[in-house]
């Protein structure tokens, strides 16, 4: 599909109608984003000011909730943060590495059984992970990997998420073959072409894959829930959940403060790369 940020197809909407559209869009944005803004505001309010109060401005501004929340559990959120970061960064490296290799083979190389493997790869896109969940758990249990980061990270190095293979495959196919052919004439083999021609030309697609991997790994709750039992290994999402269960409804401001902390990395990526993310969804149909 073409670039989605090009100028609009039906320009010159009349003034009155354009105003109406803006009113609708602003209204929808406000309703959608108000809860988020309110959560941010509430994290700076003292606890008794949160309930029954819809205002976006704390009457008494305090960062107590952040201090309380950060060390609200026996293990501090700093540890959870570090764990999440380690898992997410390793996942990004693994995913980009293994998926780009497979995508290149499918997009450019000829080999026996190619169509067979490709069809199977596409088939795994539809497969709900619940089907592989229990045997995988037994496998990792037997390898003694449960309660380590390995079950969360190693599959990424084995291109277990076919979505990214497909994304990179689509992108590689769009690169003109003349560039490969020129490199072949210069005596380059597939590895050389992959490394010096394809990868440098695919930075936007690799970045899209990297950012989505980071965000999805950061937000992943199910994987850590299954594989991590020890609080010192918890990710931010698991830590937050434990915090919910332990504070119940008693300390909402601290809960909100830690929720805001948990969202910060995703919000940062959004702020910096939102165009890349939106184009990634528009062109490949990533579920986002």
């Amino acid at each position: 599909m073409t670039d989605t940020t090009t100028v609009a197809t039906t320009p010159n909407v009349s003034g009155g109608r354009s105003l109406l559209y803006h009113v609708i869009l602003c209204g929808v944005s406000l309703i959608m984003l108000y809860p988020l803004l309110w959560m941010l505001a509430s994290s700076f309010k003292p606890d008794d000011e949160i309930f029954g109060n819809a205002s976006l401005w704390p009457e008494t501004f305090t960062i107590d909730a952040y201090i309380r929340g950060w060390s609200g559990l026996t293990v501090s959120f700093g540890t959870f943060f570090w764990n999440s970061l380690v898992i997410a960064v390793l996942s990004v490296i693994g995913n980009v590495f293994s998926c780009s290799l497979a995508a290149y083979a499918f997009a450019r190389l000829k080999f026996p059984l190619k169509n067979f493997w490709f069809a199977l790869m596409l088939g795994t896109l539809m497969l709900p992970y619940h089907v592989t969940l229990i045997p995988q758990y037994v496998l990792f249990l037997n390898l003694d990997w449960v309660n380590t980061f390995l079950p969360l990270v190693v599959p990424k190095f084995l291109a277990a998420d076919a979505f990214f293979i497909f994304l990179l495959y689509q992108f590689f196919r769009g690169i003109p073959r003349e560039l490969d052919e020129a490199a072949i004439i210069d005596g380059a083999g597939p590895w050389r072409i992959f490394w010096s021609v394809m990868l440098p030309l695919s930075i936007p697609a690799l970045a899209t894959a990297a950012i989505f991997t980071f965000i999805w790994t950061w937000d992943d709750f199910f994987g850590p829930l299954i594989y991590l039992n020890d609080a010192s290994q918890y990710t931010v999402q698991l830590g937050l959940r434990t915090f919910v269960d332990s504070t119940g409804k008693s300390d909402w401001s601290a809960l909100f403060a830690m929720s805001v902390v948990a969202l910060i990395p995703v919000l940062l990526f959004f702020a910096v790369f939102q165009r890349l993310l939106i184009e990634g969804i528009a062109t490949t149909g990533l579920k986002g």
Binding site: F97, S98, C99, L101, A102, Y104, A105, L109, K110, F111, K114, W117, L120, M121, T124, L127, V131, T132, L133, I134, P135, Q136, L139, P155, F157, L158, A159, A160, I165, P190, F194
Partner: peptide
Amino acid sequence: AYSFLIPWLIGFLGLTLGP
């Protein structure tokens, strides 16, 4: 070609098809 495919193949057989 298969050297490119190997990480995915191991993952596919060991983590998807087998399970």
